[in-house]
Simulated scan of single mutants.
Amino acid sequence: MNLMRIIRHLVTGQSVVKRAFPPDTLNTIKQAIARSETTHSGEIVFAVEAALDLSLLLKNHFSRERAIDVFSLLRVWDTEQNNGVMIYLLMADHSVEIIADRGIHTRVEQTEWDAACHTMETAFSQGQFEQGILTGIDVITKVLQQCFPADSAGKRKSELSDCPVVL
């Protein structure tokens, strides 16, 4: 258990998320997800959380475990083709995770997701939160276009909300 990490989580509030992701930025992200989803049959979700609560910190939870929990809570796994992908950002840890459902997980190497996360983290470290997420959406879009191309009839029902989720 890292005392400095616990303190960082306790002092990181929702205001950090609001500064990094004001309403205009959240709307831009929503539009990018909606545009992306017209080019493939996958689903993309973006979730951001300021900090973990004390009970998770005391259990030594890290961003990966929390991302998997959020993936489940938001039911990203609940798509017809098991092709949901979530970008999860934990502000207090300056950490981003990409979680892919089983339909995609078997087709994409973890190193590809790790590279996308590193690119986003670099943008975040420069205060470019909107651009970081948009870059992540672009990477996921390319993967989904290859693995789950759009329906040739052009019919697509969005199974999950395109709105960013602020936890």
Rank of each mutant, 00 (worst) to 15 (best):
Ile137Asn: 01
Phe148Gly: 02
Glu109Lys: 14
Leu134Lys: 12
Glu49Arg: 15
Lys155Ile: 15
Phe124Ile: 01
Pro164Gly: 02
Gln110Leu: 08
Val11Trp: 08
Glu109Gly: 10
Trp113Val: 04
Leu54Asn: 02
Val48Phe: 06
Gln128Asp: 05
Val139Arg: 00
Leu134Ile: 13
Met86Val: 06
Leu54Met: 07
Ser63Gly: 14
Glu130Gln: 12
Gly13Asp: 10
Leu56Lys: 15
Asp24Cys: 10
Asp24Glu: 13
Pro149Gly: 06
Met4Tyr: 10
Leu134Pro: 05
Glu37Phe: 05
Ser72Pro: 04
Lys155Ser: 15
Thr25Ser: 13
Lys142Asp: 08
Val165Phe: 15
Lys155Leu: 15
Cys117Gln: 12
Ser152Leu: 14
Ile137Arg: 02
Thr25Cys: 10
Val139Leu: 00
His105Glu: 10
Met4Ser: 13
Ala92Cys: 03
Phe71His: 09
Ile98Lys: 02
Ala47Met: 03
Arg75Ile: 02
Val108Cys: 09
Ala92Glu: 02
Cys117Leu: 05
Glu159Arg: 06
Phe129Ala: 06
Val16Leu: 06
Val108Ser: 05
Ala50Val: 09
Leu144Glu: 06
Gln131Leu: 08
Leu89Val: 14
Glu37Arg: 07
Ser36Val: 06
Gly136Asn: 05
Leu74Pro: 08
Val76Ile: 14
Val17Tyr: 09
Ser158Gln: 11
Arg156Trp: 07
Leu144Gln: 11
Thr135Gln: 02
Thr79Lys: 03
Thr111Asn: 11
Ser15Thr: 12
Gly154Asp: 06
Gly13Pro: 09
Phe71Glu: 04
Ile44Ala: 02
Ser63Met: 07
Leu26Ala: 11
Ala51Ser: 15
Val17Arg: 06
Asp138Cys: 00
Gly13Tyr: 05
Val48Cys: 13
Phe129Thr: 02
Met1Thr: 08
Asn82Lys: 10
